[in-house]
Design a protein around this nucleic acid. Structure first.
Lengths: 211, 211
DNA sequence: CACATAACCGGACCGTAGTCCATTTAGTAC
DNA sequence: GTACTAAATGGACTACGGTCCGGTTATGTG
């Protein structure tokens, strides 16, 4: 069983601590993140190569890949703040997204929050999840666990793990981009579709428990 | 509304007809498909580059891309026979996959057939659908229509189009590979998960109509 | 301050998907 | 058979993600 509920992407630099990383390394990470944010925002992720990011950050390509490992990981890092905020909301935030509401309502709210994030950062999320990277990412592990727990609370005895994976598939960035850009589907219809799916999947008005 | 129910991938050379394609073009297409099938089968799609295919087929790289357009399209072409067979079965084949059974049963059978195909050709199907190519492919259009019609038959008045997309997401090749290779989930559990999802989604024992 | 060393740097390099275009060739009309 | 044309060819070329490694620098220690 996967217990990685901690907040992902490691750093969390305790106040004043250097976290063992050399000063130039920290400086370059900031430069890169800053340049990546700017370029992804200005021209879109699809039109920004890793060379572009390295050049804009004033570092070599080797440094860029040493710091972030891959294009998908860089995209994830840029999304990190937003992802943390989402997690904060569904773990400790206000109802119905946070604890307190029935599982079904929380699950609907979770999907709607994901769709909002997709609406804002679709391109970046496609990049972050490309090549199967989505499924092995820390955020996905957290989402999976959250959905699994909600499903288990709403319907004990069901195969919540499998059901969670299949429901999360409906929130994939690639599907979202296709529905929005090719099928020109409005966000509200997608949200309604998600709510409909959830309502069909689990019973209403079951307490979600205390996690 | 998308009406592309015809069998995809065009050729269908009527007996003796040349279909307007030059003889050398036809010969090279066959060579390429043959080489691609062999290489994909021998070393797996992931270890076979387009250069490899071109070299094995004894043609230039330009010819390969002129004939097939992209790596994803080549993979689709290699899968074409199997895909046609699947379509044949769910359109005109025996119950419960084919016409006659209630919509719910047909939908479960459809997912199981898809999972069987994924079990046999996962790598190739990942390649065929990479970069969002899945959603704009002819096979996907056929699957979407099929599922949409089944959902509409089982529950008139629901938003069958959106529901179809979300259900099909659960049958994506990338999810399958992740569940099988990373999570080491047995095929039977995935099939049970699909059946469970469908049973939760639409009511049992509604006739599927006559399409 | 001088030194040792581990961490870091950057850009040359690789393999791959996909494009371009000068050249060749299959089919057609006479 | 010859001449013509549209189609097809193939390999050089580009852009990109990712790796490698010789040179450099920050940092702790004596």
């Amino acid at each position: 069983m996967d217990t990685s509920l901690e907040i992902p992407l490691s750093d969390l630099p305790l106040i004043g601590e250097t976290s063992g990383e050399r000063a130039d390394a920290v400086r370059n990470r900031e430069r890169i993140l800053c340049a990546a944010r700017r370029l992804f925002d200005e021209r879109g992720a699809g039109c920004t190569s890793m060379d572009d990011v390295a050049a804009a950050a004033g570092v070599g390509k080797g440094t860029l890949f040493r710091r972030f490992g891959s294009r998908a990981a860089l995209a994830s890092a840029v999304l990190d703040e937003r992802e943390r905020s989402l997690q904060e909301h569904f773990i400790r935030g206000e109802t119905p997204l946070g604890p307190g509401a029935p599982a079904q309502e929380r699950l609907i709210a979770f999907g709607e929050a994901m769709l909002d994030m997709l609406e804002d950062h679709a391109e970046l999320m496609v990049a972050a999840g490309s090549g199967g990277a989505r499924f092995v990412s820390a955020p996905y592990a957290v989402h999976r666990l959250h959905v699994t727990l909600l499903l288990g609370a709403a319907d004990p005895g069901c195969d919540a793990e499998v059901l969670a994976e299949t429901l999360l598939a409906a929130l994939s960035a690639e599907l979202f981009v296709y529905l929005r850009d090719v099928r020109e589907m409005p966000l509200e219809r997608m949200k309604a579709g998600w709510a409909d799916l959830v309502q069909r999947t689990i019973p209403a008005a079951t307490a979600s428990g205390s996690f």
